[in-house]
């Protein structure tokens, strides 16, 4: 029978945690308005193990702007022509500014079955939500998930939309500029609603679809009461999960 605990990340944990996170995540512990949390599993017959981590950020987008596409619809209908079309639109904006965010969720997968990975994430998510629930006002908490990629590692959503407005390699730019990369590229993206019908079929299909490697995380987010909202990330079109905490 294992025991779980969640605690703030310490300097000694960092080396292990960076193995779970994408190279663009920067593990700085000193940033204000954010906390790194880690779950630890104690077992009866050995030393405790770190299993998962996340970065809890409060009131996002108030200092550096954040951007998402809002996925909406318009209906084009004509009784005279007997036509009715529902069209998906993408509108760039900063709708989720001020929310809290669970970012850089990473976990240990090696030698662990899905159930144990799930338990680690469950412990971590519920501890983070408990921390947020201590506040007086209801607030929204979000989690961005990575979008779908093809066999070459390219994001069809980016290839169909973003690439026409920034021709550079988004992964190179993300490594160079870190988290600021999306703020920079948002300045180049279309400000007016984009009808998804103008995008290639594979880009349309990728809207709001997450990468297969986060299926387990997605299931835990749903168990924690989060659901895919109406926003997607501006680079890969990955879903943004959200929940209101009162």
């Amino acid at each position: 029978m294992s025991q779980w605990s969640v605690r703030p990340v310490q300097a000694a944990d960092i080396e292990l945690l960076t193995r779970w996170l994408p190279p663009t995540a920067s593990l700085t512990l000193a940033a204000p308005a954010e906390q790194w949390l880690v779950t630890e599993q104690q077992s009866d017959d050995g030393p405790s193990q770190l299993r998962a981590c996340l970065r809890l950020r409060q009131a996002i987008g108030l200092e550096a702007p954040r951007h998402w596409y809002h996925v909406g619809s318009v209906v084009h209908a004509s009784r005279a022509l007997q036509m009715f079309h529902r069209q998906t639109t993408l509108l760039l904006g900063s709708d989720l500014t001020g929310s809290s965010e669970l970012a850089d969720i990473g976990w240990s997968r090696e030698g662990l079955d899905d159930e144990l990975q799930g338990q680690a994430l469950q412990q971590l998510l519920s501890a983070a939500l408990r921390l947020l629930a201590g506040h007086d006002d209801a607030q929204r908490v979000i989690v961005e998930l990575p979008g779908r990629r093809d066999a070459q590692g390219l994001s069809p959503f980016w290839q169909g939309l973003g690439r026409h407005f920034y021709s550079g390699d988004p992964q190179v730019a993300a490594q160079r500029f870190g988290a600021q990369w999306r703020e920079l590229v948002a300045g180049l993206l279309p400000r007016q609603p984009v009808h998804a019908s103008f995008l290639p079929a594979d880009a349309q299909a990728a809207i709001g679809q997450s990468a297969p490697e986060v299926e387990l995380l997605k299931a835990q987010l749903q168990l924690a009461g989060l659901h895919a909202g109406e926003h997607i990330t501006i680079d890969e079109g990955g879903p943004v999960y959200e929940r209101v905490i009162s």
Binding site: V74, H76, A77, S78, A80, L81, M83, H85, Q87, T89, L161, H164, F165, P190, Q192, P193, V194, H195, F198, L199
Partner: peptide, 15 residues
């Protein structure tokens, strides 16, 4: 009639 059924927002030609 048809004009009412095309997008009312600007079309980005590169798309």
């Amino acid at each position: 009639l048809i004009a009412e059924l095309v997008p009312q927002s600007p079309i980005y030609v590169p798309l």
